[in-house]
């Protein structure tokens, strides 16, 4: 019962934080471009509008199940991420999982959705999926290597343990292992599907990419999981590098700070091509990661 309530709370928190953060992102972007921008609730409106569409077209059963899989994947992922430390609440089932599992869970949903994209028969969608997978190939290596540095540092894959080890700001992994944070920062932005690594859903190049055939309520589901996933990833990085959070306010503050950082970076750069993205990830963050490995493993 506790787990159920806890899970519901996590999902709700995620959703609310999700649309608020993304609303903020839109407004932040608008202000940078000297516009008024939409209201901070705009993402809620968009999401609700899609969920309330009266017509939805599907291209076969798999097309329908794809968004369901991705949503289930998002929920599963966020339930495996502990939101708070030293608390009974907002833990989900995170004691039964670990960091590597979470990293892989992040991919399960999108791949399930890729099946739906494929079964729609729209070549643009598949093109987008391929680009997404290619980008994943680029970002995952430095991202995972950065996290591996953290796992090595604490000799565990458990997020709880890593979080517990960071008591006090001086023990934050951000401070103790800055290279790891530097390594994962850009791949993290890419995994959030934010600029400059947002070629996957590019409306101009690939006609909205994987979402080309999704409309109506299915698109609503996709948006919902996207918002929740954004938060889950943010919380994960907060857990790993910013020492986690003891209460919800702290969590929101830390996640927001991190979000602000990534937002600022993505607002400043234009979009890269797929191969540029991969090449970039394999040169800069991966080079940095190798440096980190040498420092961590061989020299210290």
């Amino acid at each position: 019962m506790h787990v159920l309530l806890d899970s519901l709370a996590m999902i709700a928190l995620c959703y609310v934080m999700g649309f608020l953060f993304q609303g903020f992102y839109r407004q932040f972007n608008a202000r940078l471009q000297r516009r008024w921008g939409p209201s901070i609730w705009q993402n809620l409106y968009d999401n609700m509008k899609f969920l309330l569409k009266s017509e939805t077209l599907i291209h076969g059963p798999m097309f329908f199940f794809g968004p369901m899989i991705i949503a289930a994947g998002a929920i599963t992922t966020l339930l495996f991420v502990p939101f708070l430390k030293d608390s009974d609440w907002l833990q989900g089932v995170s004691t039964h999982g670990n960091l590597i599992l979470i990293i892989y869970l992040l991919v399960v949903g999108p791949l399930g959705n890729a099946l739906a994209v494929g079964s729609s028969g729209n070549p643009f969608g598949v093109m987008g999926v391929t680009r997404g997978l290619t980008r994943l190939m680029g970002l995952e290596v430095p991202f995972f290597l950065g996290l591996a540095l953290v796992m090595l540092q604490h000799e565990t894959t458990s997020v709880h343990a890593i979080m517990a080890a960071q008591d006090g700001i001086a023990h934050w992994n951000l401070i103790t292992n800055p290279i790891a944070f530097a390594v994962i920062l850009l791949p993290f932005i890419a995994s959030q599907n934010a600029s400059p690594f947002d070629v996957v859903g590019a409306p101009v190049e690939v006609y909205a990419g994987p979402r080309v055939e999704f409309g109506g309520r299915l698109l609503g589901v996709l948006m919902t999981q996207n918002m929740m996933m954004t938060i889950a990833k943010l919380v994960l990085v907060v857990d790993l590098f910013l020492g986690g959070a003891s209460n919800v306010l702290e969590l929101i503050a830390k996640a927001f700070a991190l979000f602000l950082l990534t937002t600022a970076i993505s607002a400043a750069f234009p979009r890269l091509k797929t191969e540029q993205t991969v090449d970039f990830f394999w040169k800069v963050p991966l080079g940095l990661a190798v440096l980190g490995v040498v420092l961590n493993v061989w020299l210290i």
Partner: peptide, 20 residues
Amino acid sequence: SRFDAERFGIIGAATPRQAD
């Protein structure tokens, strides 16, 4: 920036499936 239709919640869609 000058007219900023986004403040009304109006934004471009790439495909007809997503458009209202």
